[in-house]
Computed example of a mutant assay.
Amino acid sequence: MYDEILLPVDGSPASEQAIPHVFGFAEMYGATVHVLFVADTEHDGVGGIVGGEVLTRLENEGQKLVDGIVNRAHERDIDAVGVVEKGSPHEAILEYATDHDIDVIVMATHGRTGIERVLLGSVTERIVRKASVPVLTVREAT
């Protein structure tokens, strides 16, 4: 059913909580896990004013995060690959899913409500609305 599973991560406790679900699916279906970190270049200072130094640091931190999750998968004999992209997170996730024939996307939701959700938006919400494959959301435990 699921051969290719996409796990977008951002280093938050919420995204950490999605990992056991992904590993469980991967073990159940013999799937490959694609761990994706997107260095968000949409915010001022990352891609603009401060530019290269901040973006490089963000990409390096993302690579450490991705490598750690991939290593944890390999310790459980799960096929896994890790990728760091830069750009708009929701656009990069959707593009990656299409380009790599992803069967399901599993990602965290931070549980923002009210004005915080309106002002900050939600990458997960955009993925749920626009993805052409199923999306499993894992809510951050409080």
Rank of each mutant, 00 (worst) to 15 (best):
E4G: 00
A141L: 07
F25Q: 11
P20E: 06
K64V: 08
R72T: 08
H100Q: 04
K86V: 02
I5E: 04
Q17F: 02
R126M: 13
D3H: 10
I127S: 10
D10C: 01
A31Q: 04
T137L: 07
S88E: 04
I115Y: 15
Y2L: 09
M1L: 12
V22W: 06
S132T: 13
H34M: 02
P89I: 01
T56H: 15
E16P: 00
H100V: 00
A92R: 15
P8C: 05
E53N: 14
T56V: 13
G48N: 03
A73M: 08
A80E: 08
E116G: 10
N71I: 00
T137M: 09
G47T: 04
A97R: 01
H21D: 01
V33H: 08
M28K: 15
G24T: 09
E27G: 12
E125Q: 15
I93W: 06
V84Q: 09
D77W: 07
R117M: 11
A14P: 02
E95M: 02
G87N: 03
R126I: 09
L94M: 09
G24E: 14
G82P: 09
R129D: 11
S15I: 05
T142N: 11
K130W: 02
K86Q: 13
E16F: 06
G51R: 14
R72Y: 02
A92I: 01
D99Y: 00
M107T: 07
V106P: 04
A14K: 02
L6A: 06
I102M: 03
V22C: 08
M107N: 07
I105N: 07
P13S: 08
T32K: 15
R126W: 08
I127C: 14
H100W: 01
R117G: 11
V128F: 10
T98W: 00
P20N: 10
V104Y: 06
E61W: 07
R139N: 10
T98A: 12
A92H: 04
E125L: 11
E91P: 00
E27Q: 15
E91R: 14
R117P: 12
V54M: 15
S132F: 02
V38I: 05
V138G: 11
F23N: 09
I102H: 01
G114Y: 14
V104P: 06
A18E: 03
H43R: 14
I102A: 03
A80T: 11
H74S: 11
G111E: 13
A92S: 15
G11Q: 05
G82A: 01
H74W: 13
R126D: 14
H100A: 00
R112H: 14
P13R: 07
I127L: 14
S122I: 10
E61P: 02
S122N: 11
S15N: 05
D67Q: 12
Q17T: 07
D44F: 12
H100P: 00
A39L: 00
G11E: 04
I19Q: 09
I78S: 10
A18K: 02
R112W: 09
S132E: 14
I78Y: 12
V83E: 14
H43G: 02
K64N: 14
D101A: 08
V50N: 03
H21M: 05
D3M: 03
L65Y: 14
H100L: 00
E59W: 00
V66W: 10
E116M: 12
G87I: 02
I102F: 03
T142M: 01
P89A: 04
G82V: 00
D40N: 13
T56W: 12
G48T: 11
D40E: 03
A141N: 10
V123G: 09
E27K: 15
G68P: 02
V46H: 04
